[in-house]
Simulated scan of single mutants.
Amino acid sequence: MGTRTPGRTRRTAATITAALALVTLGACGSSTGDGSTTTSGATGVTGADTTPTGTTTGPGTTAAANDTGDGAQGGDAGQRCGTDDLTVEAGPGDGAAGSVYRPLEFTNVSDSPCILSGYPGVSLVSGDAQVGQAAEREPAAGDLPVVTLAPGDSASADLKITAPGVYGDRCTETPAEALKVYPPEQTVSVTVAAEGLTGCTGEDAPATLSISPIR
């Protein structure tokens, strides 16, 4: 009967232990059913997010590439109306509680369609002199309308003219001869003659005109 060597026994036990560990690790993998195996806790993720890239404005939304940022959607769909493309007329007044509303009509007199969107600039004038402050913009909810005018078509904006007497001593009533009107996004004006115009002048004179967006 041979003598058992302690060192050999320890090496044999270690070999058996290592083999058992390899079997245990193999069992920890989960089969995917297609011959591949995934291991939980892996740092190299192959199922990466494939959402298309874009400018994200909020959860679940992506900014359109052609957003203009000025509230006028579709501004690149056609040529904007220049001052030379338009005639401007002031319609009859409709009075209400110390104010008069007059529509400003913009008509396309060119040979091509053009776009109007936004606020016209409006002031009262006497000769070459401005009378009082220029019109303030009336707040508009949502995007500003974008109006495409075919040749001969018209769009309008509502001009509110408040009687200077409403403001008492803050106003010196000053007659005016006409309206000076800038179409939206234009730097050349049109002078529109109208009767019965009175402005408010003085050191602390408020604006007596307000204008809506083009519709």
Rank of each mutant, 00 (worst) to 15 (best):
R11W: 09
P175I: 00
R80G: 03
D84H: 13
R4S: 05
T12K: 07
V122C: 11
G44P: 00
A27D: 04
G78S: 11
V109R: 09
E138Y: 00
A140K: 02
A157I: 04
C171Q: 02
A205I: 06
G91K: 02
G98Q: 05
S117C: 03
V131E: 01
G82H: 15
R11F: 10
T32W: 02
R10F: 09
T62V: 10
S110G: 11
T162S: 02
A129P: 00
A27Q: 10
P103Y: 01
L25V: 13
S110K: 08
P139S: 12
A64G: 15
A48F: 03
T3I: 06
Y101F: 11
R11C: 07
E185N: 08
T208K: 11
D143E: 12
T3W: 04
G127T: 07
A163M: 00
G142S: 12
A135C: 01
D111R: 05
E195N: 12
K180L: 13
D158S: 15
A63Q: 14
G132Q: 05
E195L: 06
P151W: 05
S189F: 10
D158I: 15
S154C: 06
R80M: 03
T62N: 04
D128I: 09
G142L: 10
P113L: 05
D67F: 12
A194T: 06
A18Y: 14
S210T: 05
A13C: 10
G142I: 09
D70P: 09
T56N: 06
G118M: 11
A134Q: 01
E105P: 01
Q186R: 13
